[in-house]
């Protein structure tokens, strides 16, 4: 890896990047993190009709085994602190899909005193899926969008160095 890092970006490395990204995007293990109503739709998405497994996404019970966190539901202030802990426990590289208006921005519960208006106040979010609750189709679309995003990533450069390397090349 270190040898490749010193090299300018050849076709070979981009192909390797693509290959790595392709393998990773095809086995996105998501953590079962159902908070509220949206969790039921998330379950139905993983259920027989929409079948999220088609995209290589399977549910995991613990953060330590998962690459993706789907925040499905209302994030209360009491839960927000826990969410941060759970996110920190996930191994890098990790992604977050915020599902439903509640976790996007507070949604229906912006009027509430005990709700954190948006999960992006606590952890970084990659894809926002709108809806209250989003249909299984929209969550699937959100997952595909995340896969698109993952295909753009470059891994054969050390994190933080990519811009400078790209500039040299």
């Amino acid at each position: 890896m270190s040898l490749l890092n010193t090299m300018p970006e050849f076709t070979v490395t981009t192909k390797i990047d693509e290959m790595l990204n392709w393998t990773r995007k095809s086995s996105l293990w998501y953590m079962l993190f159902g908070l509220a109503c949206c969790a039921i739709e998330m379950m139905q998405t993983g259920g027989p009709r929409s079948d999220l497994d088609r995209f290589g996404a399977v549910p995991r019970a613990t953060p330590r085994q998962s690459d993706l966190m789907i925040i499905a539901g209302t994030l209360t202030l009491k839960m927000a602190l826990r969410t941060k802990v759970l996110y920190d426990q996930m191994p890098d590289p990790k992604y977050v899909i915020s599902m439903g208006s509640c976790s996007n921005c507070g949604g229906l519960f912006q009027l509430a005193y005990s709700v954190c208006d948006g999960v992006d106040k606590v952890i970084p979010v990659d894809v926002y899926v709108p809806g209250c609750p989003p249909r299984p189709e929209s969550l699937t679309e959100g997952l595909l969008k995340l896969q698109e995003k993952m295909m753009q990533e470059k891994w054969l450069v050390r994190r933080g160095e990519d811009e400078s390397v790209a500039a040299q090349a």
Partner: peptide, 22 residues
């Protein structure tokens, strides 16, 4: 209490018809 969304308090702010979606 990890999902306490203060629905009872919101009722006092949104009115009778408006509370139905909650």
């Amino acid at each position: 209490g990890y999902l306490h969304r203060s629905i009872e308090k919101i009722a006092e702010k949104v009115g009778y018809h408006g509370f139905m979606p909650y």
